[in-house]
Amino acid sequence: MTALLSIRDVSVDLSAGGWFGGTAPLNILAGVTLEIVPGETLGLVGESGSGKTTLARAVLGLQPISGGRVRFDGRDLIQPADFRAIRSRTALMFQDATASLSPRMTVGEAVTEPFAIHGVAVNNHRDKAAELLVEVGLPPEMAARYPHELSGGQARRVGVARALALKPALVIADEPTAGLDVSVQAEILNLMADLKDKHGLSYLIITHNLALVRHVADRIAVLYLGRLVETGPTRAIFADPRHPYTRSLTAAEPKPDPRKRRTDLAIRGEIPSILRRPNGCEFHTRCPLARDICRTQPPALKDLDHGRAARCHFAENTTEGGRHELEY
């Protein structure tokens, strides 16, 4: 199947400010390559500062890229006009759903806005708004509310309704359940899954929540300091992570079972600043398996079996040893 979205070697550099450009640019994303096929959900995982939100914005042309290429549905997106041309087929859901709604617009106006923007004729805005709200499980009367009058879960549903108004092919969801209670989180995820089945959507879900991504994503891509460190099918990655960072992340997640308490730390230290990227493998400062080669030689993203890839010198052979060392 041809990819719906394909990005090749995408880099994003932000100028660090200063009138005379004296400081070196911040290298937020460093050569990221990803693909999403129609109907697929890709989970983009990483800690804060890993560049995952920047990647989402770069894909939509909201953040100019400084290198690489973005293709959508077989067409290269280069000019701002190219990105504008696909805006009716893509949608972005924000981490803070309430803040993504115009504070002086009612819910009804907000969900029907995509039609106005793209000049799609709508017979009756009120009926259309009601239809969209019902589709995401909200009562039609909600159309008269303002964003600040909504609960977190309701605002999230309004965000989904607006994202789906034009029946897009790709929905990018930035932390779709951040700040929601577990019981509400499940409702939103199920709604997104239902709509995906109904409309054949593809999702790019950006999150740091591994428990969530395990349930919703077909494939996972793990970012560290703006670089892809591991990618592959969800099931395979959770069963047998090949990059020590992925392994640390899965181990760090607190397990809701007091019988599985960790006795020691899975990962130490903090994510380094992108202003001072470590030499060699950028994870070596926190890696429990780092050897000499890791401190000097940057590893390449190696293709492994079953559509997997990992950026580690020992991606092929550390599996057993690494797991033993990590499980103590």
Partner: peptide, 11 residues
């Protein structure tokens, strides 16, 4: 906090 930091604070 992030997951890795959360684990460290719990610890």
């Amino acid at each position: 906090l992030d997951v890795t930091m959360e684990a460290q604070i719990v610890h």
